[in-house]
Amino acid sequence: MNSSTLSGKRGAISPLRSFLMQLKKNRVAYAYISPFYLLFIVFGLFPIVAGLYLSFFSWDGISKALFVGLRNYARLLTDPMFWKALYNTAYIGVFAHIFILGGGLVLAYILNSDLVKRKDLFKTVYFLPVVTSSVVVAIVFQAMFGTNSGLINYAIQSLGLHRIDWWGGKGDYIKPAILIMFVWRWIGWNMVIYLAGMQGIPHELYEAAEMDGARHSQVFFRITVPILKPIILFTILQSVIGTINLFTEPLVLTNSMKGGQNNQGLTVMMYLLDKAPWGNNLYGYASACAYVLCAIIVVFSVINMKLFSPDEAEKPTRRRA
């Protein structure tokens, strides 16, 4: 009798009850992982959802928010300054990353091979800029790019060329200056990531290639780069996000929120934060801007994955199996 009621109860157990029982049984594990999910929901997910909502309103933070539909987006996409900022960001991002990723890959290849000694010293020195603060680095580079007493113009003049007015004039040299500093700062980081990936490549592969008489350039392009494809994809994605977030360096280098002469150093992140919350109080407009930038990141990520994913063709069949 007793046992039959028990089993009856067991059969009628509600999904909620069983869920709670599982929760209780595994409470330690859930407790250990819960901080991440709680913080993510409150400080990550909620603001992102709220940002989409806010982007359809006009709000100054004090008076009542006014629903404006897509007007924030329309205004943003017709603002020449936004396009200028986007162009500046893309210009810096593309040219800088040719050197950052390409240079990082070459340095990693050399420091992973048996070509040189004292590899740890080189690695340490190349990684040094990554450890330092963007603000410090940008202040030092501002001095290095000084027109009359900067180290870089001194070097240029010593070579018999004319000094460059890096920050003045029409501002044509602002982007190259930011770009140079950006490369200096991040090449070591990417080198270390590639080095990590290269340690996963079996040494026999290199030895076999060497026995076959392959030159280093061949080994680099035929073995190293193809194997590192997923890691290169990862670094490209990181670089896109990093470029869109580019803010501190141009702000400090040009010493202005507007990106210096003719806004030549204005990046999209500076444009966004200047609308709200750092400069003005155009909260809805800034949210729309943030969403457009995110859309750009997402589009880039998808293109990247399509272009670089090594087993794109195999994936559907694998899933079916």
Binding site: G51, L273, A290, Y291
Partner: peptide, 16 residues
Amino acid sequence: TMMIPFMAGIVPWFIM
């Protein structure tokens, strides 16, 4: 979540 650009929520984050 590692792929989500958190910058999308920077304005509400600040308001919060």
